[in-house]
């Protein structure tokens, strides 16, 4: 199959990668570029572990063709923190609430929370639960995750700028 050089903009940096037409964004990010925060969970668009932001909106990288997002602004969990060595307020709230156990769902949860708090800085519990209904967690039972997102919202620190 023909290979093609494309440029992807991930976390405000440009990456030149050689891809085939059937390559998925999740694999290009994780395997080719080596950003391992984006997880391969179900591979069928059910679990939300591969969530990344494309032009600010959460989408599923495991059912997105890499060539389809040329020219888009992609943000992975690696691009959420404001600077090296610091955490985003949502990440801090997840640590504080122990909203992480195995950690596999965490990148997707945090990116969905990031989008939610930009759109809706003061969400209700129902709105938080609705936002994360496409992200499956097998460890926490969700309560600590919902609390962490609520805490991040209450801090008022996390919705000022787009990642």
């Amino acid at each position: 199959m023909k290979k093609e050089l494309i440029t992807l903009t991930i976390n405000r940096e440009q990456y030149d990668v050689v891809v085939e037409d059937n390559e998925l964004l999740s694999n290009v990010i994780h395997d080719t570029i080596g950003m391992t925060g984006t997880k391969y969970g179900c591979g069928t668009g059910e679990c939300g572990a591969c969530t990344v932001l494309v032009n600010g909106e959460p989408v599923l990288a495991c059912i997105t063709l890499a060539k389809a997002v040329q020219g888009a602004e992609i943000v992975t969990i690696e691009g959420v923190a404001p600077e090296p060595g610091k955490l985003d307020p949502i990440q801090e709230a997840f640590v504080e609430q122990a909203a992480i156990q195995c950690g596999f769902c965490t990148p997707g949860m945090i990116l969905v929370a990031k989008d939610l708090l930009i759109r809706n800085p003061k969400p209700t519990e129902d709105e938080i639960r609705d936002a994360i209904r496409g992200n499956i967690c097998r460890c926490t039972g969700y309560t600590s995750i919902v609390k962490a997102i609520q805490d991040a919202a209450d801090s008022g620190l996390c919705c000022r700028s787009k990642p």
């Binding site: 199959m1 023909k2 085939e20 037409d21 059937n22 998925l24 694999n27 391969y40 179900c42 591979g43 069928t44 495991c62 063709l65 060539k67 389809a68």
Partner: peptide
């Protein structure tokens, strides 16, 4: 099936 990849080859056109 391996849900990680798409095994069959195709051309992807974006007019």
């Amino acid at each position: 099936h391996n849900s990680r990849i798409i095994t069959n080859e195709f051309d992807f056109c974006q007019p």
